[in-house]
Design a binder for these strands. Structure first.
Length: 288
DNA sequence: AAGAGGCCCTGATAGC
DNA sequence: TGCTATCAGGGCCTCT
């Protein structure tokens, strides 16, 4: 589910609601997430004061007063729910990616009490994970293998062009490769390539410097707009305050198989093709 | 070293 | 109140 824009929405929401508060308790109901949560995990978190909620790529990062960090990755199906305990019903006041305004009944694996709030981590597929880092060094170590975010000035045409030299994979594969650029997932990769007018199957060594400029530019455009629209809600997902994100209404190709290309004056059709076991959507005429 | 493919897991949906 | 197959937005690991 969550690519950079969706995680950014959660981050902004959490920042407003839990910054400055203290974790009073943590209850782990299921330790078997993507990586098993170690037994001594709770004692690292409890009684810590949250001074900031940050994000890198698709990772949520809670910074504590003692300069240690809690990192949460939502994987494919992770959602965060905030419940205000001072309200009688389990009303979700904030930060949910779930369609129902009520808390899901199943798969609430972690509960963190933060003053009068309860933060609940729900994740049916359990592809998400929690990590604790004692200091900056430990945290940064994790991110060494990640490429720049699309918004990073480093992610320019020269970086892209040089990176692609002597590479044989197709461009779609690289856009979702976090060591090349971090934060883009399967949905936005298709959308970005549509605006670039580049076929997802194009081998990157065949891309010109001007193609690379487009990739740099439209990656920013697509992600920025997705954040503005509150992220994308597909299937049963919604964003902060229980409202749906609306970027899915702006999809040009994603999940539009066999429909008409939306580019003005283009008479093409959107096709779906599996590239490395992941679905890709593209126009058969205006993308080359 | 780069690239292809398997796999972790549950739930929704389509087809029978 | 069927069953079975397929697919889903991520990313790590192994093998070649």
């Amino acid at each position: 589910m969550p690519e950079l824009p969706e995680v950014e929405i959660v981050k902004q929401s959490l920042n407003k609601s839990i910054t400055g508060k203290i974790i009073t308790n943590i209850l782990i109901k299921n330790r078997n997430l993507r990586f098993k949560i170690p037994r001594n995990f709770e004692k690292n978190i409890v009684k810590k004061k949250i001074i900031k909620v940050d994000r890198f790529s698709k990772h949520l990062i809670l910074k504590f007063e003692d300069k240690s960090y809690l990192m949460i990755h939502l994987g494919m199906s992770g959602t965060i729910h905030l419940i205000n305990k001072s309200i009688k019903k389990n009303t979700i006041t904030n930060t949910s990616f779930y369609h129902s305004p009520l808390l899901p009944k199943k798969h609430n694996h972690v509960e963190i009490k933060i003053d009068n709030l309860k933060l609940i981590y729900n994740d049916p597929r359990r592809f998400g994970y929690f990590s604790y880092f004692k200091n900056d060094e430990q945290l940064n170590n994790i991110f060494k293998k990640y490429g720049p975010e699309p918004f990073d000035p480093l992610f320019d045409k020269n970086y892209i062009f040089n990176y692609f030299k002597n590479k044989k994979k197709n461009i779609k594969n690289f856009l979702i490769d976090q060591s090349f650029v971090s934060g883009i997932g399967n949905i936005y990769a298709s959308e970005i390539l549509f605006l670039c007018k580049i076929l997802p199957s194009r081998e990157v060594s065949s891309l010109s410097i001007s193609d690379c400029q487009k990739i740099s530019h439209f990656s920013k455009v697509v992600l920025r707009k997705a954040i503005e629209k509150g992220g994308s809600s597909i299937r049963d997902f919604i964003n902060i305050s229980g409202d749906q994100g609306s970027f899915q209404k702006n999809f040009n190709v994603y999940q539009r198989e066999n429909k008409k290309c939306l580019k003005y004056s283009c008479r093409g059709t959107v096709l779906k093709k599996f590239i490395s076991n992941r679905s890709s959507f593209f126009c058969n005429l205006c993308q080359k």
